[in-house]
Design a protein around this nucleic acid. Structure first.
Ligand SMILES: Nc1ncnc2c1ncn2[C@@H]1O[C@H](COP(=O)(O)OP(=O)(O)OP(=O)(O)O)[C@@H](O)[C@H]1O
Length: 638
DNA sequence: CTCTACAGTGTTTTT
DNA sequence: CACTGTAGAG
């Protein structure tokens, strides 16, 4: 138990307070995650069984890191359940065969398809009301644990809301017809399971006697309720968070959950960590200056005994390409000073901004990785191949059937609604030929035979071989055998998929299902490179929880950051918290940059510097170039 | 039936 | 500009 000496007094006390509810609130870089990790190790060393511990992290990546730290701290060989809310939900739901023994997990594009179907069936014009709008409304309702009927009760005020209630209802029916759950359902159903089935709840309460939750300020109602239910009996619940770092309000997270904690559990022990171990004094003061302008917060103490350090550097450029070129040059200079590429991070508000940096990297031979960009599993060829796997293990998934029935083309385009309705009701089988005409009958039977033969093989082949078989026997690879650079890349992607599938080869009959589930739960942050030799480019959201020696915060212009769509007071406060998060990632160096002309949509827009830039106290920053206002007049910071 | 070309449309952040 | 969806040619 020597390891605990690495912690300061308050941190140690927080680790040792293993029984009863514990709330750890603290600013950035004060060791919250570290305390949580040590707490798990401490529990294990004190004889708590691994299976009695549940630790919830914000990303899979953070879970991995926590697992490996714990492994190095304890002798215990089996790991507790450490994962995200969604990962936990999938594992519990599958074990309980709830709501179905097997279910597909639908991603954003699957959701859009179902919503579009619902819209056209309800004769709601998709051009007047955008599918994405309904997707957001439905997601919000689910995060609030509102079933369609409950949502309908509260949605009588406007035409839009009434329409949304109808769409939600139909969408949900479609999901269940496909025996599928969307992301939000994962949380909603696990709460439903525990509310309906007391023995199941009690079993899990007794199993997970010790519960720990990181980044608690960013939990939504469903997650909050899940934790409340699970911890009700033993009340050994430890949550850590920082309301100044709440940046997912737009997704239904509510930082009031952490403020409520003490009233929810009156016997709560509160620990406040006030020493920051990450950043220099200058960085910390700059971050404080920004966050102190928020009204919706509780002031917190945060200090460091690190040196003042360098001033933050502000750079002003004409165009984004120059901003990017500068950043890459500066990174190269840092390499000369002994920095690793992995010590640097380039942060921006919107994904679209990554482009300029990618081009600059490519142009100067700088290895880089865009965190969360073009997600591998969202590529067409990957989704196609995976859909074959889906219909094999979950034949009720009509959306998957629709995706592949004519991919590659086999004379079965745009089948009638009657066909799909019948398929939905009675399942996909030879019976369906009764609603097909002429040559399509034969084409369809051939297709069915193909899927059947793949299904037969799924029992004997290893998963990776099955995936390979799919790519071959369906003619998918053959079709791609072309010469274009693009097709070449697709072939490589499929091969990549085959090699990823290898990791599941030893799961035997469950391999395909496990594989599909894990694919569905992959997050942007998981693509963060471990590679010491590439520069990480990412959004300020994706950087949550990480730290780097040098951080470049780019695109500090009004309209970009804070974003133009954030206009309410609350949203602006969230932008400000995002800025606080970005700044507090840095250990030593911060570069802030903005450009005068931002190209949005292909045309140039004049921009003015972000308020966050202008608020920087003059004594903490060094300005290179002129900071101007909307009339082009240069202004002084104060 | 399939593919391509173009028009129209829309850009926050993501589990 | 980049993505989607549709109309017409092949
Ligand atoms: N007692 C300590 N002594 C030395 N270093 C510490 C101590 N506690 C934490 N640290 C270091 O401080 C840094 C920040 O820790 P950690 O990531 O756990 O903080 P956090 O509060 O979770 O941060 P954030 O909320 O900003 O993500 C890490 O590098 C960690 O190793």
């Amino acid at each position: 138990m020597e390891f605990i000496k690495q912690l300061n007094d308050v941190q140690q006390a927080a680790v040792k307070a293993t029984e009863g509810p514990v709330l750890i609130i603290a600013g950035a870089g004060s060791g919250k995650t570290k305390v949580l990790t040590f707490r798990v190790a401490y529990l294990l060393e004190n004889g708590v069984k691994p299976e009695n511990i549940l630790a919830v992290t914000f990303t899979n990546k953070a879970a991995q890191e926590m697992k490996s730290r714990i492994a190095s701290l304890t002798k215990e060989l089996t790991q507790p359940f450490i994962g995200t809310f969604h990962g936990f939900a999938v594992s519990v739901l599958k074990k309980n065969s709830y709501p179905y023994p097997r279910f597909s997990i639908y991603d954003a594009s699957d959701q859009s398809k179902l919503i579009k179907e619902a819209l056209s069936e309800l004769r709601i014009s998709g051009s007047e009301y955008k599918p994405s709008l309904f997707k957001e409304i439905i997601s919000r309702a689910k995060n609030e644990l509102l079933e369609p009927s409950e949502y309908a009760l509260s949605a009588k005020t406007s035409f839009e809301k009434k329409a949304a209630a109808q769409v939600y209802d139909l969408y949900q029916k479609k999901l269940s017809a496909n025996q599928a759950l969307d992301f939000d359902d994962l949380l909603m159903r696990i709460v439903e399971l525990f509310r309906r089935n007391h023995p199941a709840l009690e079993k899990h309460q007794d199993r997970f006697k010790y519960i720990l939750v990181d980044e608690y300020q960013d939990t939504n109602t469903a997650q909050y309720e899940l934790i409340r239910l699970l911890s009700q009996k033993h009340k050994n619940i430890c949550v850590v968070g920082d309301i100044d770092q709440a940046i997912y309000g737009w997704r239904g997270a509510d930082f009031r959950n952490i403020l409520k904690f003490e009233t929810d559990y009156p016997e709560t022990k509160v620990f406040k960590l006030e020493q920051n171990y990450r950043s220099t004094k200058n960085i910390l003061s700059a971050a404080q200056t920004i966050i102190e302008k928020n009204v919706l917060r509780k002031p917190k103490m945060l200090w460091t005994d690190k040196p003042g350090g360098e001033k933050l550097k502000i750079f002003v450029f004409e165009k984004a390409s120059q901003e990017a070129a500068f950043v890459i040059d500066e990174v190269k200079r840092l390499l000369g000073l002994g920095f690793n590429l992995a010590d640097c991070a380039v942060l921006y508000r919107t994904n679209a901004q990554s482009r300029a940096f990618e081009e600059a990297c490519l142009g100067s031979g700088m290895p880089y990785k865009v965190v969360g960009a073009f997600r591998f599993y969202e590529r067409k060829e990957i989704k196609d191949v995976l859909s074959y796997l889906k219909v094999i293990i979950q034949p009720k998934d009509i959306l998957a059937w629709k995706r592949i029935i004519n991919v590659p083309p086999r004379n079965l385009p745009k089948l009638s609604e009657v066909f799909w309705e019948k398929a939905q009701k009675e399942g996909v089988s030879g019976e369906l030929t009764s609603v097909l005409k002429g040559p399509k009958k034969e084409a369809f039977l051939n297709f069915l035979r193909l899927v059947e033969s793949l299904k037969d093989k799924s029992f004997s082949l290893k998963l990776s071989d099955l995936v390979k078989e799919i790519a071959d026997k369906t003619g998918y690879l053959e079709r791609l055998s072309g010469k274009s650079w693009e097709e070449q890349e697709r072939i490589e992607n499929i091969n990549e998929l085959i090699s990823i599938a290898k990791q599941f080869d030893d799961h035997k009959s469950e391999a395909a299902e496990k594989f599909l589930d894990s694919v569905a739960l992959i997050q942007d942050a998981d693509t963060l490179s471990d590679d010491k030799n590439s520069l990480n480019l990412m959004t300020m959201h994706a950087v949550k929880g990480l730290e780097f020696k040098a951080v470049f915060v780019c695109g500090l212009e009004e309209g970009i950051f804070p974003h133009s769509r954030a206009d309410s007071k609350e949203e602006l406060e969230e932008e400000r918290r995002l800025c606080y998060v970005a700044l507090t990632r840095a250990k030593e160096k911060i570069y802030l940059s903005c450009v005068r002309q931002r190209n949005l949509f292909g045309s140039y827009n004049e921009s003015i510097p972000s308020r966050f830039l202008l608020e920087m106290p003059a004594e903490l920053v060094e300005v290179q170039g002129e900071v101007w206002d909307e009339d082009g007049i240069s202004i002084q910071l104060d």
